[in-house]
Design a protein around this nucleic acid. Structure first.
Lengths: 353, 353
DNA sequence: CACCCTTGTGCCATTCCAAAT
DNA sequence: TATTTGGAATGGCACAAGGGT
């Protein structure tokens, strides 16, 4: 209700004077300024960022589209986004898409309509972001950063894990512990799966390790990625079966790399239930870091990256890109690979003889 | 870049006609409309919601302030908020405060400056929201909903757990299973702790049960609520000690109610490590629902509410309040108690003889 | 010539009212 | 008279000029 105009009338000066007084820019006498400030305080005046944004051309809002914020990995990614955004004085509008391309599209248009300065996009579905939407975003000067290997029709700034480094760290760590039969348990529908698999295979092969213990249960539908769903439970069941299958083979692996939070937890618990001791009998290595890793007993060693870092870097890149464009500079798309670090806990040990 | 004005020039008509054509309101010839729509499509025109909002007085944005979005409970709450908001065509700006009153205040002013229609506030710190901020919000027609017992200087709409119902469900469930010595493990700094404790005590007392097995380890600082922090680990250690202390008493409880996600997981794992069998020797009842409850082995029975429901109800109430105010109606503050339901899994069984 | 302050203009879309066909 | 179309004012703010002392 209280606007510049209103305040100006109360103070008996023009809107401009009020504006200047409150922004602490010169051009108002100290006395007038004090009077205006007192009035602003009294009437709880706050400048309208929307109006300001219309003039400046920036809303100082970022859009962030994620598959699901209750999934630990994405929650932490969003955490990184939020922290960095606050630090740089940006607000964040978040959307969940549940991996639905329709939802993604709707969310993007909502964000365009709000004139957000940039969009951080993490969409799990394999359909790349269409040229048309990208053109729409571009024509509204919206920067786009692809998170975690989200496919796009045209090249854009991208922040993702350093899969090569991740694979090397993981395999090297287990190799040094003496492991020669190492398994990998992933999910076939995972985004960035090809990248990850290729990196792992390379790391295995140049050490002469077999990839026979790789297994990827099928996620029958995207529903399988909602943690409390029936499809998810079925997926877990399939993972447990695959796991037990490998462990009951004549020459079972001595170490296993597992790539997704809830699956790690489930395998961890399944192993314990079936009397497979960790790490004596089997070294379990989480291929992503997660909060509960240190709470489980034995605590799970991970080579995960901090997902926060992806979010943080993405915000920085988005802002950089946006500001460069405002100056008319157009640099080629950037690929930022976030390295992972090993968090040694209790679930990996030397290979049994 | 492409605005109504721009489009109007291109089409050789007035801004008005463009506005009407695109909103599908009558007053434009079919031919003109088609021409304008084609142009809008071609130039990726999208109306600016900020400008629209200035006129209508609503931004169709909600603010949501939470302690931490990586904490499962709040993540799920935000999930509920986001789902309901999307359904009602609202966007959500989220802030994390890490329970810091300063951050909360800053976030609120940011949200006022964005002219969000309503604020959903969940702040863990015990200092109530000051009258001054509340007045500022009010003077900007911003609705406020307090989530989960967040204290405020003046009464406002509030959505929180139905602690009385929750306590009754939990105690009744265990009582029916034959348990007479039931423990409770909480954290002393928790918000809404008084409410919860009182409700539990009442449920215990009218069944003649002792509350001797209640214990509340101290969270030395708010840092203890960040899951991966050192303070948090120390808190976990204190919980485990308290737990083992109770279990080693001459007459240990046969059932234990535990009230926070990571602590439940830790107690679950600690019990297993110390050879305390669940549910044979000890029935473990989670006092909050969480995603991993079904993944742990044995799976954890919970009486938790779905935190999503708090978020969902809060959005509905916020919008209701906002719309009522727009009509000049001012109803007294509402208290919505969200009931919890028992999710029976494997961690509770009949009391041992 | 400083300094204070006001006027006019623009951003983007909408509502209400007037004018053309 | 009905239908289409245009103008002016609105909302909230800020920037570029210009009028006063």
């Amino acid at each position: 209700m209280t606007s510049l105009r209103h305040l100006a009338e109360l103070a008996g000066v023009s809107e401009m004077s009020v504006s200047r007084a409150l922004r602490d820019v010169p051009g108002v006498s100290a006395e007038t300024r004090a009077r205006i400030k007192a009035l602003a305080e009294e009437y709880h005046f706050r400048p309208d960022l929307r109006a300001r944004g219309q003039l400046s051309g920036n809303s100082r809002i970022l859009g962030c589209i994620l598959p699901s914020i209750t999934y630990g990995f994405y929650a932490r990614m969003l955490n990184g986004v939020l922290r960095q955004a606050v630090q740089d004085d940006y607000r964040v509008i978040t959307f969940q898409t549940y991996s639905d391309p329709q939802e993604t599209l709707a969310a993007i248009y909502h964000l365009i309509d709000q004139r957000v300065d940039a969009l951080l996009l993490n969409s799990v579905h394999p359909e790349p972001l269409s040229r048309k939407v990208m053109a729409a975003m571009r024509s509204h000067h919206m920067a786009l950063v692809s998170l975690d290997a989200t496919p796009t029709a045209l090249p854009v700034d991208e922040v993702r894990l350093d899969e090569e480094h991740l694979a090397e760290s993981a395999v090297e760590y287990l190799y040094e512990l003496g492991h020669r039969r190492i398994g990998f348990l992933g999910v076939d529908r995972m985004l960035g799966r090809k990248l990850r698999l290729a990196a792992l295979q390379r790391s295995f092969q140049h050490r002469g390790l077999t990839t026979d213990y790789f297994t990827e249960p099928t996620a029958t539908s995207l529903e399988a990625f909602h943690v409390p769903s029936a499809g998810f439970k079925a997926l877990l069941g399939r993972c447990a079966s695959a796991f037990l299958g490998i462990m009951q083979s004549p020459v079972p692996p001595t170490a296993l790399i597992v790539s997704s939070e809830p699956i790690i937890v489930h395998i961890h618990q399944t192993a314990l239930r079936h009397g497979i001791t960790i790490p004596q009998q089997l070294s379990l290595l989480g291929y992503v870091d997660f909060d509960l890793a240190c709470i489980l007993t034995p605590a799970v060693t991970t080579v995960g990256l901090q997902p926060e870092e992806i979010g943080r870097q993405a915000v920085i890149q988005a802002i950089t890109r946006r500001e460069a464009r405002a100056k008319g500079e157009e640099l080629p798309p950037v690929l930022i690979k976030v390295p992972g670090t090993i968090a040694v806990r209790e679930s990996c040990g030397p290979a049994p003889k």
